[in-house]
């Protein structure tokens, strides 16, 4: 499970690659709720690694906290359908980054991860899409630190 997170975080500063993008990533349809925003930067949050900032180019005040799901993939795997990869012209998984948007559950004071709708990015073409996965067991508010 994800309970022993402190060791992962202390390792994170050195072992996770930098995600910061110098080019904006193009989201043809925006993302749900921000359909008119089509270009986003991913910025490192050095103080808060491995968390990253997903920030709109057009409206920089629209910024979301995301995390590279590769860190958690072995604990809570997310499967991306072939047609999504096809839409984004992803030919192999090495061309793809998979991020999950984080949010905050005020009741439990916990971070939650939206596993139902991850961000898929073709890092070669700098194109992305927020995909809504069919799997009905995936949670929109998955508790990342299950305490």
């Amino acid at each position: 499970m994800i309970r022993d997170h402190s060791t992962q975080l202390s390792r994170s500063n050195s072992s996770f690659p930098a995600h910061e993008t110098d080019k904006a990533i193009y989201f043809k349809y925006g993302i749900p709720g921000f359909e008119s925003l089509t270009r986003f930067f991913i910025k490192n949050l050095p103080e808060y690694a491995p968390f990253l900032l997903f920030q709109s180019v057009e409206e920089p005040e629209v910024s979301l906290i995301i995390v590279d799901w590769a860190i958690y993939q072995s604990e809570k795997p997310l499967e991306i359908p072939a047609e999504t990869k096809c839409q984004l012209k992803i030919q192999s998984d090495s061309e793809m980054n998979l991020y999950v948007i984080l949010s905050f559950d005020s009741q439990s004071q916990q971070l939650t991860a939206n596993l139902k709708a991850p961000l898929i990015i073709n890092k070669i073409l700098n194109q992305g899409q927020q995909v809504i996965l069919d799997d009905p067991t995936l949670e929109i508010n998955y508790h990342l630190f299950d305490q």
Binding site: G33, L45, S63, I65, F104, L111, A117
Partner: peptide, 26 residues
């Protein structure tokens, strides 16, 4: 639902509540 969740997540940008949470969860 995804739209509502994205909008909710976007209200938690730094230096707000989200950052405090990230700090305390380290």
């Amino acid at each position: 639902r995804i739209k509502a969740e994205n909008r909710r997540a976007a209200t938690l940008h730094p230096p707000g509540l989200m950052m405090q949470t990230l700090s305390t969860n380290r």
